[in-house]
């Protein structure tokens, strides 16, 4: 297998976005929700394959639809986001696996190392940059609303709009990683580096840096080791990320 520079660039941009989005997903206590949320891409992929459309478009459509749905349910019922996502989107995985079959299902679940077109790379990179720009530009508002939504309101932050924007950024990041990691593993590339960084960092700045570094290192290791061992890159990337997490366990951080 030969390495594809366009695909590699896209993976790295996706990993940076995953590292950053993951920090706020972990800080907002969305760890389980984030994982389950990525499953909602599966019915989209199934439907797209059924109608001979680009699978990623189907995934993106159901991800965004799912995002609006959990945002709406959370606002109306005030249930914790873990509950809403857990219930609604485990069902999505079931529907998706009925719609998708055979090898396509394995690729959709765990990702593969297929070649990407120039257009796909460009669109993917633009989306990754948009996610990165959003997290960096909104980090102050995200921090304040994380501490208390009521304080955020009195500070002039539109909390509901910010929540929705964050969920959209999250979904976009999941969609970006689907080709590489699949619906089962993409949530983990968002969560594991950030969870590791949370253990090690003593400030938000260092949490960002550690999380991005681990996400990029894991994705890169997945690509190169996968190519060398003739294995799909996704599972290797997640194993590497998990190794970082295990190493972080005995360490108690900071001053």
């Amino acid at each position: 297998m030969t390495l594809d520079p366009g695909g590699l660039g896209l993976e790295l941009a996706m990993a940076v976005a995953a590292g950053l989005v993951g920090c706020f997903a972990v800080l907002r206590r969305m760890t389980l929700a984030a994982d389950a949320m990525s499953h909602v891409a599966l019915p989209g992929i199934g439907l797209a394959l059924l109608f001979r459309l680009q699978p990623l478009l189907g995934a993106l459509a159901t991800l965004l639809l799912g995002t609006l749905l959990i945002w709406g349910i959370e606002r109306r019922t005030r249930l914790p986001i873990d509950t809403v996502v857990g219930v609604v989107f485990s069902a999505a995985l079931a529907v998706g696996s009925l719609l998708t079959s055979g090898e396509e299902l394995i690729d959709a679940l765990f990702g593969g190392a297929g070649k990407v077109s120039g257009l796909q790379s460009a669109l993917g990179a633009a989306a990754a940059l948009a996610v990165i720009a959003f997290v960096l530009a909104s980090r102050d508002r995200l921090v304040v609303s994380l501490i208390s939504p009521d304080i955020a309101r009195t500070s002039g932050i539109r909390v509901a709009a910010l929540d929705l924007a964050f969920l959209v950024a999250f979904s976009l990041t999941v969609a970006l990683g689907l080709r590489f990691l699949g619906v089962l593993l993409m949530g983990s590339l968002i969560i594991i580096p950030a969870a590791t960084a949370k253990r090690l960092a003593g400030s938000l700045r260092s949490m960002f840096a550690i999380s991005v570094a681990i996400a990029v290192a894991s994705a890169t290791a997945g690509t190169f080791l996968g190519a060398a061992l003739h294995r799909p890159p996704g599972p290797i990337a997640i194993l590497v990320a998990s190794a970082f997490f295990l190493v972080s366990l005995p360490r108690r951080r900071r001053a």
């Binding site: 304040v144 501490i147 500070s155 900071r254």
Partner: peptide, 11 residues
């Protein structure tokens, strides 16, 4: 992992 200074700077 958010320091007191980071929180006030965000505000």
């Amino acid at each position: 992992p958010i320091t007191a200074a980071e929180l006030l700077a965000a505000k």
